[in-house]
Design a protein around this nucleic acid. Structure first.
Ligand SMILES: [Mn+2]
Ligand SMILES: [Mn+2]
Ligand SMILES: [Zn+2]
Ligand SMILES: [Zn+2]
Lengths: 139, 139
DNA sequence: TAATCAAATTTTAATGATTACAAATTTAAA
DNA sequence: TTTAAATTTGTAATCATTAAAATTTGATTA
């Protein structure tokens, strides 16, 4: 996505598109790798040597508050972020660590039992071994 | 559940049923409240003044390793434990903090997209406001 | 242009959950 | 009883995240 589009997206969500914010959102949108705050920091600090990790945290918290990104918690003590805010699932491979996006047929995903509950967020994820790592394990 | 049953359960999973382990597993089984390690500690230390928080952590890690309990991660930086190891979902109320068990019709819960993946764990949870808190909010 | 002000970023320090490690205690076997 | 192994404890370390205060940036106004 071009920078202009990213700026648009930020503005649409009431966020002033500062240099850092554009960089961080671009990272999320392009990499689609569900990174931790630290992964983003380690990558961007190469380009922006003055970057502070607190800025990464502040920015991600702002994104979540303004619904530009969501938090994915699959493993304990490891907060990850996703700029794809649509309802979709994830699979984390315990071997290579990659987190895959899983498209769900969202119909009938909400249990009847929750009829009287107000649902703000739905999360579905799986853990195991991905096909690539399964193949490697054979050889 | 009586103490004998709890001991049985531990033995079945290759865990020597020490006093502390029985207490901690009993807590999980009786309360069914998906507690944090600290919640368990705070409650049990009343009965067992010499209890160490490290023991609670060690024991919970052992339970997870031996499949007597599972880890539930709904909110970041808050690891919770559940002695119900069957496939079921959860709902956490953002208002009162309670975590509800949700029975799922497990049929067709695994997306076709994961056919070639080896799935070890499935997690489904929702966040929002529970009926009790919704009612309170009205008045 | 220069002064002003708020927002954004940085720096440093604090917090809190979890783990590491070694010592002490308990349990069970020899 | 002796000894070794397992369990528990206490303390310190680690690591992710947040808090607070200082600095910088960038727009706005005089
Ligand atoms: Mn995703
Ligand atoms: Mn449960
Ligand atoms: Zn893999
Ligand atoms: Zn509630």
């Amino acid at each position: 996505m071009q920078q202009k589009k990213v700026e648009q997206l930020l503005k649409q969500h009431d966020i002033k598109p500062s240099y850092h914010r554009i960089k961080i959102l671009s990272y999320l949108l392009e990499k689609k790798n569900h990174p931790t705050a630290d992964m983003i920091y380690q990558e961007l600090v190469k380009e922006i040597p003055t970057l502070s990790k607190t800025t990464v945290y502040n920015t991600l918290n702002l994104f979540v508050e303004k619904n530009v990104a969501i938090i994915i918690t699959i493993d304990e003590n490891e907060t990850r972020y996703d700029a794809d805010i649509s309802l979709h699932g994830h699979f984390k491979c315990s071997s290579c660590g990659k987190i895959y996006d899983i498209r769900l047929n969202t119909a009938g995903i909400i249990p009847d039992e929750l009829e009287k509950f107000q649902i703000d967020e739905s999360h579905i994820y799986f853990k195991g071994t991905c096909p690539l790592c399964l193949k490697k394990a054979l050889s």
